[in-house]
Design a protein around this nucleic acid. Structure first.
Length: 198
DNA sequence: GTACTGATTGGCT
DNA sequence: GCCAATCAGTACC
């Protein structure tokens, strides 16, 4: 499997998001296939970049291909892939993945919180399966070692819908269909009924 | 300095 | 369906 080059990520987050579906995330022996994503863009009232460059969001304004990892609700680490050119301020949130290998490691990491089977249907669960903290923010995903994104098959059909948990944003951004998922996969977070065929 | 909130999750009613 | 956990960031005094 080949690692994706940095220029793969230097496009609009809205174009990058569906292209990340089917690609692989790897850290040590854990390999996950990306099944659900959301795009966050410049001038987007739901994007963390809306407050400008801060200590937390600085990676979002870096060149596409960096990781942006932040702590949500003081508990969960959310993994984003920075999109577009340096300074634009756009990213793609990884919401769900299918476990491919490293199940034992995934279970060990997730056992800290639950004894349920491997469930990767939600952004907090993905961060936990990969065992990443906010220290991974700004990590280049196009460099070998650590945390990488590898090429994978393009999905046959894609589902689209509005993004989750951004009710505070402007209506035009709440309603924007910037959430994408692989059609037919069981690895999709709630709510599932707002996703429709493209 | 204080008050409030969030790109969520798991457990309990 | 409801709610606590837990903390960085923003807004405001």
């Amino acid at each position: 499997m080949t690692i994706l080059p940095h220029h793969f990520f230097q496009i609009d987050a809205l174009d990058l998001a569906p292209r990340l579906l089917g690609k692989f995330l790897r850290r040590d022996d854990v390999l996950l296939q990306i099944t659900e994503v959301e795009a966050y863009r410049p001038n987007d009232s739901a994007c963390h970049g809306r407050f400008g460059i801060t200590a937390r969001t600085a990676p979002v304004f870096g060149p596409g291909g960096l990781a942006y990892v932040y702590l949500c609700y003081g508990l969960h680490t959310m993994l984003n892939v920075v999109a577009d050119k340096e300074g634009v301020g756009a990213a793609v949130l990884i919401r769900s993945c299918a476990p491919v290998s490293g199940l034992k490691t995934i279970q060990q990491r997730r056992a800290q919180l639950t004894e349920k089977p491997v469930l990767l249907t939600g952004p907090g669960k993905v961060g936990q399966a990969l065992g990443i903290s906010t220290e991974w923010s700004n990590h280049p995903l196009y460099m070998p070692g650590g945390l990488e994104i590898l090429d994978g098959p393009k999905p046959e059909k894609i589902l689209i819908g509005p993004r989750v948990g951004i009710e505070y944003a402007l209506p035009e951004h709440v309603n924007a269909l910037w959430r994408f998922a692989i059609a037919g996969t069981p690895w999709i977070s709630a709510p599932k009924n707002t996703l429709m065929p493209q």
